[in-house]
């Protein structure tokens, strides 16, 4: 759960047994689609399209419905994430403390290739609003983040 780093080699060619395992674990559980998708993403780092027919068949739902659920929720990814996944809060409290400038800094730095292989996503509140601005790197929270602190955090995430 606390890491988004995918084992890209494990996906997607031999994803069937994994999906079968997960489906078996949730068999008979009411409203199991989100837990199933979470288990899959926790294991692979993302949700490969190949898994959708199998999930749909097991839950007796249409493939369109399963696809609809995946695409509705911002947390679910349909492509492998970068080595480091950075989420920067864009909400009001962080905006009150320089969050917009921090986001622009992150975007520019990543675009320039200065931070290594990083995917950047906005997030709307990490619950660290008394210590804004806040970011999450590979599932780990960081508060009172300055551009300099962010650069250092990204550098150590790339080394890890």
């Amino acid at each position: 759960m606390d890491t988004f780093r995918s084992d890209a080699e494990a996906a997607p060619h031999d994803v069937d047994p994994l999906v079968r395992d997960i489906l078996a674990r949730h068999a008979g559980r009411p409203g199991a689609l989100l837990p199933i998708l979470h288990d899959l993403q926790d294991a692979l780092g993302w949700i490969p399209e190949q898994a959708i027919p199998q999930i749909a068949a097991a839950l007796q739902r249409s493939r369109a419905e399963v696809h609809g659920v995946i695409s509705f929720y911002g947390h679910f990814r349909t492509a492998a994430p970068a080595r480091t996944h950075l989420e920067v809060c864009r909400a009001e409290s962080c905006q009150a403390c320089g969050g917009n400038a921090l986001y622009e800094h992150a975007r520019a730095r990543i675009a320039a290739g200065g931070a290594g292989e990083v995917s950047l996503a906005p997030v709307y509140c990490l619950g660290l609003c008394a210590q804004s601005p806040a970011v999450m790197i590979d599932g780990r929270p960081h508060a009172r983040v300055t551009p300099e602190k962010l650069d250092a955090l990204l550098a150590s995430a790339q080394e890890a």
């Binding site: 839950l59 659920v69 929720y73 911002g74 947390h75 679910f76």
Partner: peptide, 25 residues
Amino acid sequence: LRRGAGAYICGEETSLLESLEGRRG
């Protein structure tokens, strides 16, 4: 314990119920 998936609207009670049932919120 059920985990949401990054949709603000699921804090609205009926949307949350939809999500718990395995649907779009």
